[in-house]
Design a binder for these strands. Structure first.
Lengths: 151, 151
DNA sequence: GTGGCTGCAAACATTTTGCATAACT
DNA sequence: AGTTATGCAAAATGTTTGCAGCCAC
């Protein structure tokens, strides 16, 4: 998304294109992954207040540019740019890495729920905890030394 | 689960079968659905301190009798008795009801991730937000009057 | 009897909010 | 210029923890 279209999207929905909002969007864009509000604040170091980060994320979510998801057990929300495709989050409990699994599994599920059960799914939040390929290869069951991601 | 086996499970793993723990388990059992820690505390009115409810839920989770899930946007965890089957949570954003969808969708997903991507899924948290059958029938898109579940 | 458990209150972490000032349009 | 958004600090929320006394074992 270009800077211009970002500005347009905000204005089109009655919001102003302010420095904090653009900076927050930039941070998420650069991260190409998930960030908590605090991590976002850290990446725009000193330039945006944490409370403003929350408000900016809220506005960006309102206009559909970002969305939040709860990953793992730490009490904070993670945020990411909204993707065109639904996707699952694969959280490795060994190394802590979060992978995006883009596939048709979510689509299939939505279809199944609608046709089979009349439930019209709009938002699907799918968080899978497990062991990723590299960690599963290293040690089967035993955590990798020095990669404490579990709490 | 009988009272006796509940006591056994706790003792078998080195925990005591105390009044608060049994009461918390009872509350979840009677609710046959999800309760937040605060709701659990309310249902054992005056008998168990909220902090103890948290500790009891923690112990019950440790021994595998209950587990937690984040439903919707309210910031608190919901707890339920552990089911033998994986299941999706269908949250209706009109009436706020939470339905359990037990199916093989989750199993299929786990298989797919393991065989196709080498990701060994252990925990799957699937929360689907949408419009349930009854609400979808009443009004297509327009919320049912007086049933404010969205925020 | 002893060690784990409870209740209370206080700490903690995350997110939200009130208000004066600054910045976008 | 007019209003919306920001920064700061303080409040609100949900959860965890320290400690003295209690209860299950």
């Amino acid at each position: 998304m270009t800077r211009d279209s970002l500005v347009s999207v905000l204005r089109a929905q009655g919001h102003r294109a302010t420095r904090p909002r653009l900076a927050v969007h930039d941070a998420l864009s650069a991260a190409s992954g998930h960030l908590t509000a605090e991590q976002v604040a850290a990446r725009v170091d000193g330039e945006v207040n944490l409370a403003t980060v929350y408000r900016a994320l809220s506005v960006l979510q309102e206009v559909g540019l970002v969305h939040s998801v709860r990953l793992g057990d730490h009490g904070s929300l993670s945020w990411e740019l909204t993707h065109p495709d639904d996707h699952a989050h694969l959280v490795c409990r060994v190394c802590g890495d979060v992978d995006h699994h883009v596939g048709n599994a979510v689509e299939q599920l939505k279809d199944h729920l609608l046709s089979g059960h009349g439930f019209e799914a709009t938002g699907v939040e799918l968080v899978v905890t497990g062991v990723c390929v590299s960690c599963g290869a290293d040690a089967d069951g035993a955590p990798v030394p020095g990669a404490g991601a579990t709490k």
